[in-house]
Design a protein around this nucleic acid. Structure first.
Lengths: 202, 202
DNA sequence: TCGATATTGACAGTCACCTCTCATTTGGGA
DNA sequence: TCCCAAATGAGAGGTGACTGTCAATATCGA
């Protein structure tokens, strides 16, 4: 589906400039959000920082919150997961996806990801607005679990499992960000996802 | 802390009217939200429907979103949980809290709760804005789990467990709402929370 | 090089959340 | 009954997200 990688032609100057502008808007926006918070940052300020007119901002992002909530990681996760052998437990498959192609992707713009994730957890406004995204992740994961286990994606148990996994993962991400990304995300994953596959005794 | 139940005096006419107004604002707001969505409903419309001036609306709710996000259930849940014996597994304790005093509370304004919860899940705007609330629930639950298990509330495993429980519960609530509240929430709970205490095999 | 097209900036304007002030009404207590 | 404090309504005003138009500019294809 994602034939984003050079479909037919090499992108011309026009297209490259658009990508640059888009990226610059994002960077400046995140910088300002981190400095003074989401609400306190106006579109005009973002536009000024990115050296574009406010009109142009809205040509790139239909609304202010789209700067934050547009995500590109989900499809990569789903793809990596589907590449895993069918018998493998989902928890293990996710682990494999984390070290595999998804891992490279995360390493690539690790700094941006760290900054962005930090804002997501720090600023309650943004946190609230990123839920829709998280719920999409949940749905995607439920799909994959359903495929792999031969069940229906609308099965309540499947949904619950997906929700629990995402919830634990979110918790780990928050912890990871709070520790400035110094801890090994994979080690955290290994240690705590077992809670779900083995059951916890609280 | 919540000495709300007749602390010293019987509430006078003034206080009763305030409660009525507050309740009327809520009801009309929910009705309008359900009709046309959260964003599409203006404060002026809510005020008009509730027969008050827009100024008065903001005297009762500091912002529009507070009509939705102000929650009164969490403290009740925490209290009910703390009343359970210490040895009892948390999952069982929550179940007990659901049938106990919290259950009555839920039965009391069940209709309002159903309507309100439905909006919460239906309208993405409101859904996003209610996350902060959900995270508070998570923190509260983590506290209780920590108390009961003799661990630290900042223990990552405790946080993960709380997050997973809340996530599953949220999933069940959504399912319950989608089924118009006809299914037995308790039965759903019994059937699916076992996933967490016994571990699932996906 | 040149014309067509896409992108942009300037700018005016709308809409709704929210604040503040001040006069008026209403309930509580003596 | 009368006074005080709380609650309310009316209305003016600020702010920031977002829309639409139009002319200027930059890029592309031939």
């Amino acid at each position: 589906m994602t034939t984003r990688t050079t479909p037919t032609k090499p992108p011309g100057l026009r297209e490259r400039k658009k990508q640059q502008t888009r990226q610059r808007i994002r960077e400046e926006a995140y910088r300002l959000f981190a400095e003074r918070g989401y609400e306190a940052t106006t579109v005009d300020e973002i536009a000024a920082a990115a050296d574009i007119s406010p009109s142009t901002f809205f040509r790139y992002f239909p609304s202010k919150e789209d700067v934050v909530t547009q995500d590109e990681y989900d499809p990569a996760l789903a793809e990596a997961l589907r590449a895993r052998p069918a018998g493998e437990p989902t928890v293990d498959a996710i682990r494999a996806a984390l070290v595999g192609p998804l891992g490279e992707l995360l390493d690539g713009d690790r700094e941006q990801l760290l900054l962005r994730t930090r804002i997501t957890f720090t600023d309650p406004e943004i946190r609230a607005r990123s839920v829709a995204e998280q719920e999409r992740s949940e749905a995607v994961l439920a799909e994959v679990i359903a495929e792999r286990s031969g069940r229906d994606a609308r099965d309540l148990e499947v949904k619950c499992a997906a929700a629990a996994i995402i919830a634990v993962f979110t918790t780990l991400m928050r912890h990871w960000v709070e520790g400035d990304g110094k801890e090994d995300l994979l080690a955290l994953y290994d240690r705590h996802l077992q809670l779900l596959s083995r059951g916890f005794d609280f």
